[in-house]
Design a protein around this nucleic acid. Structure first.
Lengths: 181, 181
DNA sequence: GATGACATGTAATCAGTTACATGATTAG
DNA sequence: CTAATCATGTAACTGATTACATGTCATC
């Protein structure tokens, strides 16, 4: 049920097309949730049938026509009740951790290569997230942060940066430990 | 395809029944992967058909009979080739981050309650993980860590501890920021 | 007498990925 | 001429959850 709330939340910010939502998932929302177009389009149709969003057709000449979705009052209410509902503990499902857990079954060089690739990946992510975080600070209000979308966005970003920093630290520690022999 | 490797990895340590694997997922493996019995039993049957594990029946009187699975040579080879295969970048799918991203749609008190619950949850997890980590240190070898299962287990645990520490720090920062008004 | 651990399975459903399908415009 | 962006959909399949199903023994 998270996908529908990710969509509703983005539409609460501003009306968007399915395609724009897809791009939004690749940008700001990337730290929190992922979805592909084959999930987004059918879900928007379901949300419309449930009365939580409605669309208007936007005719274009140079580009294909598009459907602009906007959230309804019922949609906003659904978001508020979701935010007030208790949240279940999440379960871990991380392939990389699983590999580290099983690394003793493989040889030194293979493990080292795997760790190096992962470290490079997370160092790159960290650098990128840090840049975006600095940029996001520009939009921060000095007060009323609880009701401000830009602050919420910034807070999610901080989580992303903190997470990548922890992963990078842990990988460096692990590589150093294994290098000891 | 990760579930099958989680099972194979656990069976590479020692032969286990489906039920013992389930318990193992709830204990040591909990930091890396989750699976329920309704996934484990059919997957073991598939692994057996693929020749990666085989089972022997263990008859019991007081308890129901059980099937003890052990990994085959082909199973060990499958693990090594999995560990050597390139790993895809993982996508984020975290309901709590999504909620924080949307928190501006809700009121102060609701958000505060959500953050407090989550902080308490992660503080408890951190405390528990830290205890397990200290206990796991006992089994650490001084050398040959790359091929040692206990070290791999310890490394996964360190990741869990580091992760919870980062989440707790971030939640405390967020609560403090929102308290500023 | 109820709950929880032991022990193993199947069926229905839901969520998510990959592939199939189409087609115009713009930039290199 | 080739790839990328814009734009929207469906179908097949895989992975995971929830519910259905059964039965003993030990402990409170």
């Amino acid at each position: 049920m998270s996908l529908r709330h990710a969509l509703l939340g983005s539409l609460a910010d501003q009306p968007r097309t399915g395609y724009a939502l897809l791009k939004h998932f690749e940008q700001s929302l990337a730290y929190a949730w992922h979805a592909s177009h084959s999930q987004i389009y059918p879900e928007l149709a379901r949300l419309e049938r449930a009365g939580l969003v409605k669309h208007t057709l936007v005719q274009q000449t140079a580009r294909p026509d598009k459907k602009r979705y906007r959230i309804t009052a019922a949609g906003r209410a659904a978001m508020r009740s979701w935010l007030a509902s208790p949240i279940d503990a999440s379960v871990a499902r991380d392939e990389f951790s699983l590999r580290v857990f099983s690394m003793w079954l493989s040889d030194r060089r293979t493990v080292r290569a795997m760790l190096d690739v992962e470290l490079a990946r997370h160092e790159a992510l960290l650098a990128r997230h840090e840049k975006v975080e600095v940029a996001a600070r520009q939009f921060l209000p000095s007060r009323a942060r609880g009701r401000d979308m830009h602050f919420a966005n910034y807070a999610t970003l901080r989580r992303g940066v903190g997470y990548e920093r922890h992963v990078v630290d842990w990988l460096r520690w692990l590589i150093a430990e294994l290098a000891k022999g």
